[in-house]
Structures are given as structure tokens and as C-alpha cells.
């Protein structure tokens, strides 16, 4: 079933300058934006950085237990969109987000919504591994500690171990949990960051180009890990590598200059793109 959703004609209420109105998307998203079993539902998302319209009228569902990949040329807004999903854009003073995003049916865009529990439910892994300058153990224990998830040292130990195991790092570091996290290799650091995210038991994990700073071997390990994690978590991954998107995701969304151009199953997007821009990108004419 193909449903074409018109990009909303509703203009953001506080859009001041006329020239900004010209930014308004003229394209429509091709493909099925909704999911039969959605975890997160985004409708008509707009993001501005000061006067720069970075995301234009994007609507997209993220289904349970799926890996959705977001691809597109750099500067297309895919990372910005990802950061909307756990409201990390709040940390950028210049950013302004409009539209509706729900998590399990609950609106998260409202002013009154608390970002702390939201971020505990929607975890995030960043482009560059960013372990805290603490020991491996403390890196993992940080989340559970601040949220008070465990009641005893034994429980915490266990949680740290499970998290590391799930991230596939346990075997490599179990003998040096007290060593600094920054001393690990790049790929290990990134898995440490994934383990850190898992430690607070999120429902959704957002990954912002998690392998772009890593070598091919480390990348392969992380991609396998993503596939495994799909059993338990919903994963949205931004990547600049089309091969990676093809390898790890079930659905793929193609962004172009702030527009969501096309969404579909990964197979469809890569084998029979419907939109000209998508096709050009997939076939390597730009990007």
C-alpha cells in the first residue's frame, strides 16, 4: 500500500520572515511513513536553527523492534531529526522544534514533558565515542546510579555485567573494569557507550552515525550488535553509509535538504527507489 502524505500546508505560527516561507517543502514524502506497530509517531516536525529551517514538515513512524535507517547527503537534517526523538535539541539554545512526537502514544514535545525519564527511555549513541573520563565500570554504572535503578552493589555489579555482555564487550574488559574507559580502542569505546545506554533499559536507541569514527572491523562488530539488539529494542540509526543501512535496517528513510523524500522497506529503497532524488543518491550520482 502506498500512501502519499502531503506535506502539511500549515505554516508554523511564529514563522516571521516571508523568505522563510519559501523554504516550505514543495516535495511530498513518497512511501509508507506509518508503521503497523509504531513505537514512536512523528507528525509534521519542523526544526529551526535561528532562522535556518533545518527540518521541514517531516512525518515518520518508528516501529517496534525494527531498525530504521536514516540516510541522505550531509547536512540533510537526518541527525537533527534523530535528536528530536529524545529532545537532545533542547541542549542547543538556538534550536526550535515544532510538531508532534509520541512515544507509546504519549506526546513528548509538550513543554511540560520531563526530558529526564524520556531520555531514560530513548537512549542515544553518538557519532564519536564519548566515554566519560572514568573507569569502565563507572561509565556503565553512571546511568543506573543517577536514576537509582539498583539497590545494592551486587545488583549494580550484575547490571554492569549484563549491559557489557549485551554490548558484546564483557569478555574483553571483564578483567579490567577499573581501567579508564578512555583507554579502550575506538570500537570498544563505542560499544562501551552502547552498553552505557543499555544500562538504563531504554525502549528506543538512537544511533547517530555510530561507526563513522571506526575502522571496518570495529564497524562489522557494531553492525552485528545492532542486529542482535533489534530483538529487544527499537533502533533508529543515522548513517552516511548506504551499505550499512542496507546491512542493518529493515526500513530506510531518505532525507534531502531537510525534507523526508522517501520511506520504505530497505529492500524497496535500494532496489526500486520511487523518487528521482532517492534514485540519484542510491546510484551514487551525488552524496
Amino acid at each position: 500500500m502506498t500512501m502519499i502524505v502531503e506535506a502539511s500546508a500549515v505554516k508554523p505560527a511564529n514563522l516571521k520572515a516571508d523568505h522563510l516561507a519559501q523554504d516550505q517543502s514543495t516535495t511530498t514524502t513518497v512511501g509508507e511513513i506509518s508503521s503497523p506497530n509504531p513505537r514512536m509517531v512523528c507528525r509534521d516536525i519542523n526544526v529551526w536553527y535561528n532562522n535556518n529551517h533545518a527540518i521541514k514538515h517531516v512525518s515518520l513512524d518508528i516501529g517496534k523492534n525494527e531498525v530504521i535507517a536514516m540516510i541522505g547527503p550531509s547536512g540533510c537534517g537526518k541527525s537533527t531529526f534523530l535528536r528530536c526523538l529524545n529532545r537532545m535539541n533542547d541542549t542547543i539554545p538556538a534550536a526550535r522544534v515544532e510538531g508532534s512526537i509520541t512515544l507509546d502514544g504519549q506526546e513528548i514535545q509538550d513543554k511540560g514533558i520531563d526530558v529526564v525519564p524520556l531520555r531514560a527511555r530513548v537512549g542515544m549513541v553518538f557519532q564519536k565515542p564519548n566515554p566519560f573520563p572514568k573507569s569502565i565500570y563507572e561509565n556503565i554504572a553512571y546511568g543506573p546510579r543517577i536514576h537509582g535503578l539498583t539497590n545494592s552493589r551486587a545488583e549494580l555489579d550484575e547490571l554492569v555485567e549484563t549491559s557489557l555482555q549485551r554490548a558484546g564487550l564483557w569478555k574483553e574488559v571483564k578483567d579490567r573494569l577499573d581501567a579508564p574507559g578512555t583507554g579502550l580502542s575506538g570500537g570498544q569505546q563505542q560499544r562501551l557507550c552502547i552498553a552505557r545506554t543499555l544500562s538504563v533499559s531504554p525502549e528506543v536507541i538512537l544511533m547517530d552515525e555510530p561507526c563513522s569514527a571506526l575502522d571496518p572491523i570495529a564497524t562489522a562488530i557494531i553492525e552485528d550488535l545492532i542486529d542482535e539488539l533489534r530483538q529487544q529494542y527499537t533502533i533508529a540509526i543515522v548513517t552516511h553509509s548506504m551499505q550499512q543501512a542496507a546491512r542493518v535496517s529493515q526500513r530506510t528513510a531518505y532525507f534531502h535538504l531537510g525534507d523526508l523524500v522517501e520511506v520504505g522497506t530497505t529492500d524497496d529503497i535500494f532496489n526500486q527507489p520511487k523518487h528521482k532524488l532517492t534514485e540519484d543518491y542510491i546510484t551514487g550520482r551525488f552524496g
Partner: peptide, 26 residues
């Protein structure tokens, strides 16, 4: 919830624990 507590099945969900800690943390 697809993912309840990582250890010990009978305990409260992490979400509930986080919610409960909010007042103190704020």
C-alpha cells in the same frame, strides 16, 4: 513494555523507578 528490568523479573520497571526518583532529583 518490551524490556522490563534487566535483573529479577518481579521488580518495578526502570521507567517506574525513574519516575519515582524525579522529585528528589529535581
Amino acid at each position: 513494555m518490551t524490556n522490563t528490568a534487566t535483573t529479577g523479573g518481579a521488580r518495578r520497571s526502570p521507567q517506574a523507578i525513574v519516575e519515582a526518583s524525579l522529585k528528589r532529583r529535581y
